[in-house]
Design a binder for these strands. Structure first.
Lengths: 146, 146
DNA sequence: GATAATAATGCAACATAGTTGCAGAATATT
DNA sequence: AATATTCTGCAACTATGTTGCATTATTATC
């Protein structure tokens, strides 16, 4: 995806939601769409700066919250206890996340889902599932293949 | 378990570890041993106050870190992105946690473990697993039975 | 294209979780 | 009882996240 295509995508997504299309939201959503893994607030801020964008820390928090509210982005709790965000392009809400200990990236594992529940003790009513795996991602586990 | 038995247990565990037996460590470990679920730093501090114990916030952090280092306690990341601690009486390290939305308690689910890994994409090397479930615990889901 | 209503932004200040350095106090060892 | 070592408490600090409010930008309407 080229930058312009991403910007266009971001713009469309924002139009569909009820709210205003602002540079901050466009920028943030663009960054999320371009990212291959979930980004922390800090990573987003840095990327924005590299792109010449600049907005307040608070604005970023609010833009992210808003994107999550609108169902455009996804807020995931990583192993380091900070929130990360990614733009879900039609992904289901409940899926596992893999945190690579080496490169630090977080990957969504859409496939790892149904195997979970069958040994749950009786009486528990499960409403949300969070699965965080840690280890080495394919690229870091076996650098030869890339 | 009565308070004295717990204190005795705590004392023994501390003796076995290499380090000093201090009131703070005894108190903290006692609280953890008496708890049915994983406690946050804040909850431990409150409980300690109720018992007439008093130590600095920092001391508590350090005591907890030390207990974790010694393998006496277990540090788990809850859904609210804060750390919680519990004294693991022979429990395996890798098990799921259940966070009750109503009573806020966190339960360890020792049974929920082996079903996890089989649909993982190839290439990932998993070294740690964190499973956080949210919902209603048996007591809150069906108050009649208690 | 200008105007008005509404919504988003920036700033400052605050809240909470957690960390670090260091002097003084407590523990274990002899 | 004296010593070396290790904890503790204090103060200050960092990082993450939140709130209130005045200012600015967006969008719908004219």
């Amino acid at each position: 995806m080229t930058p312009d295509v991403i910007e266009q995508d971001a713009r469309e997504l924002l139009y569909k939601a009820q709210g205003r299309v602002t540079p901050a939201r466009l920028g943030v959503l663009g960054i999320l769409l371009a990212a291959k893994s979930a980004l922390s607030h800090q990573e987003i801020e840095q990327t924005a700066q590299q792109q010449g964008l600049s907005f307040d820390r608070v604005t970023l928090y609010r833009a992210l919250d808003w994107l999550v509210e609108q169902g455009i982005a996804h807020k995931v709790g990583g192993v380091d206890r900070t929130w990360r965000y990614n733009a879900l392009a039609g992904a289901t809400h409940q899926h596992a996340h893999f945190h690579c200990k080496q490169c630090g990236q977080i990957f969504c594992l859409e496939s790892l889902q149904p195997a979970l529940l069958f040994s749950l003790p009786p009486g528990y009513r499960v409403e949300e599932v969070e699965v965080n795996l840690q280890g080495h991602c394919p690229a870091c586990a076996d650098p030869g293949t890339n």
